[in-house]
Nucleic acid binder design. Structure first.
Lengths: 242, 242
DNA sequence: AATTTTCATTTGTCAGACATTTAAAAGTCT
DNA sequence: AGACTTTTAAATGTCTGACAAATGAAAATT
């Protein structure tokens, strides 16, 4: 592990990269302990603060975790699905909010990906997944629900649909697509009538999954995608005028 | 922007969280300049080093960028698709390599997602995308190619397929799925015969896309998925014995 | 008016110190 | 000997103060 001493600045970035490469390439294995900050500062010939800044960078990416005390130090972190989900969602949400992605584009991506899951979900859904979906659909039918709560429940419903495919890699990849659209959906005001339509489609989807009917699930997902898109367009058009 | 002074440790994490929340919620806008490190250290009542560690964390997530000099400082960074791709790929690759994900699971996820793109790609593919796919297929037919180069070209082919859908959100979401499987594919030795089959299917896919035939594209993708999976299984089975 | 120089501001790095946490080692008592 | 307490060493977390380097704006000079 060495760095280029001629490169003028950003020593901490270079050190972070050096360690990151060692982790990604497998030179440093999961749960292996890195040298202490003092040792690293000697190895790289920099101050301890610089090493610390590098370690903070790696910690922010969940590549390492640190522990205080006598047997503490920095350890190569085993990236859990949980952590990866979180990063995926944060990044996706920011990407969409900062790049003025149209609702249509995000919606298209989301439903295309969900339709990819649907056949697997129809095959593998458990009673548990169905129960979650039914419960969320039921919640969505409550009259007093705020728009935010309605959207949050919508996300939960679709997450259950995705998780039913029983493929953690798929769930991870779709976490971003499903969650990141929530802020965009929150810009829509749902009338009682439009909620009714959506809830009905959600119930149809749950029915289709219960019957393990992949084709019908797909059909209803397409209908939901189309309806959501039309709804958004009319809402945004109305806002433009008013 | 304030933090809990009673919470004993990890001040820099608290400060990072505080600033991150301000960015995610939109309180701090894109390209807006944060207070200088000295000012932040006064606001949060911590030392400059602690503030710096917090800023490094945010920098590692591409939430801010820093610039030296008189008018420099830390600025809220507009997350580009490029940066998001990179993070997505790093995280996905690590997730797969650290969690002993089976080839079958990763493969299933990848092809499910690609099939989601295919109809859109068939509709929107440009001559450019086709040219890239043809070129990669041609490269894959070269006899002297190493397994690594073959896999890299395979990834390039599939990226072109995904990009042809002309939906940046979709491209971003799939970047991880397509790229992260490369290390797993690199564990496979491709015989001349199996390469031939794959290249033929790649050509078929390109043909189908050229003809804007979504059904045929899907059919060939399914065939490719199935063949890849079988190939991997036989390779791993043979390795187990030998 | 154009160019050069100076200067103030800000991040990047360093050195040294102390606080806090933690587990192991040493000591003490029953 | 075994159980409990105390000490100690190692590690991260934080603070202070300093200097280096970059950089744009202001001032001075031609």
């Amino acid at each position: 592990m060495k760095i280029d001493p001629d490169s003028p600045a950003d020593l901490s970035a270079q050190i972070a990269k050096s360690i990151r490469d060692a982790i990604v390439s497998g030179t440093l294995r999961v749960d292996e302990r890195l040298p202490s900050e003092t040792e690293l500062s000697e190895q790289f010939d920099v101050s301890r603060s610089t090493v610390r800044e590098a370690l903070k960078r790696l910690g922010a990416q969940s590549l390492i975790r640190t522990q205080r005390g006598a047997t503490g130090g920095a350890f190569v972190n085993k990236l859990t699905y949980q952590e990866a989900y979180g990063q995926q969602i944060t990044t996706s949400t920011l990407l969409l909010s900062m790049n003025a992605v149209s609702f249509a584009t995000a919606c298209e991506a989301r439903y295309a990906l969900e339709r990819a899951c649907a056949p697997l979900s129809a095959q593998r859904r458990t009673a548990d997944h169905l129960a979650t979906m039914r419960a969320e659909a039921h919640r969505q039918a409550q009259p007093g629900l705020t728009d935010e709560a309605f959207c949050a429940s919508d996300v939960a419903f679709h997450r259950a649909l995705v998780d039913a495919a029983d493929n953690p890699v798929l769930s991870y990849q779709l976490a971003g697509a499903v969650e990141a659209i929530e802020p965009l959906m929150n810009m829509i005001t749902f009338t009682a009538r439009s909620r009714e339509t959506i809830v009905a489609l959600h119930s149809d989807i749950a029915d289709a999954l219960e019957a393990r009917d992949a084709e019908k699930t797909d059909e209803k997902l397409v209908a939901l995608a189309s309806y959501t898109n039309d709804l958004a367009q009319s809402v945004f058009a109305a806002r433009q005028k008013g």
